Simulated assay, not measured.
Amino acid sequence: MRKSVPILAGLACVVLLSGCGKRGYDRARPDEFAVARQAPLVIPPDYSLVPPQPGAARPQDNASQAQTLDALFGGNTQRSAAENGVVNQAGGDSADTGIRSSVGDPATNVVDKGATTRDIVAAPEGDGQDAKASAQ
């Protein structure tokens, strides 16, 4: 009994290892990268293009800043009734239109609130469950 266990284990290893060989059972499977050839890239002709006129302005140079503003803010479109209502309730008819200029003006009075206010404003968002008090 003692000798039969190592012999059976050895035979089991030989049988399992023989299954890894490529002698008897070899599937002929296709190479997945060689199955289909890719067609070459062809750019179809665009018949709407016309050659540029000598001395004419380039169309992409016309008011690039205006094109950028139109892309960002949608151009000069009329406000909807709901949007007009919100703006009127917020006091849009009496609002100071130059507020951005007056905020950036060096003559604007600014109150320094100190590092504590800066730390509170810069604190990450959260519900405060992980907040801890520190003894100073």
Rank of each mutant, 00 (worst) to 15 (best):
R58G: 02
G74N: 04
Q65R: 13
P30Q: 05
F33V: 03
P30A: 09
D31M: 02
D96N: 11
L41M: 10
D70L: 03
S18T: 05
P59M: 06
A12H: 00
G85K: 05
N88Q: 10
L16S: 08
A12C: 13
A95N: 08
A107N: 14
Y47I: 06
G92F: 07
L8D: 02
T97Q: 10
A131S: 12
V50K: 15
V5N: 01
A57N: 01
R29T: 08
G114N: 06
G74D: 03
V35D: 01
I7Y: 00
S94I: 14
V5F: 10
D61N: 08
P52G: 04
L8S: 11
V87W: 11
P40D: 07
S134A: 14
A9R: 11
D46S: 04
A115W: 13
G10V: 06
P30W: 07
N62C: 03
T116A: 15
M1A: 12
L41A: 14
D31H: 06
V103Y: 11
K3S: 05
P51I: 00
A71V: 00
I120C: 09
R100A: 09
Q129K: 14
L8V: 13
A34E: 13
N109V: 14
V50T: 15
L49I: 09
Q78W: 00
K132R: 15
A131F: 07
G55A: 07
P30L: 10
V121F: 01
D112R: 08
N84Y: 00
D26S: 13
S94H: 04
I7H: 00
A82R: 08
R100E: 05
K3V: 07
N84L: 13
D96P: 02
P45H: 09
R79A: 15
V121I: 15
S48T: 15
T97C: 02
A81V: 07
R23W: 06
D105S: 12
R27L: 13
G98T: 09
S18R: 05
G98M: 11
P45T: 12
I7W: 00
P45M: 10
S94D: 09
P51M: 07
G10W: 06
L17Y: 03
V35K: 13
R2F: 06
S48D: 13
D112H: 08
C13I: 15
I99M: 11
A34M: 08
A135S: 11
A9K: 10
V103K: 07
A131P: 04
D127N: 13
R79P: 14
S4A: 14
I120K: 15
T108K: 13
P45F: 06
L41Q: 08
Q65S: 08
S80A: 03
M1I: 01
P45Q: 14
T116W: 05
L72W: 01
G24R: 10
V110F: 14
A28L: 10
Y25H: 10
I43R: 06
V121W: 04
A36N: 12
K113Y: 05
F73R: 03
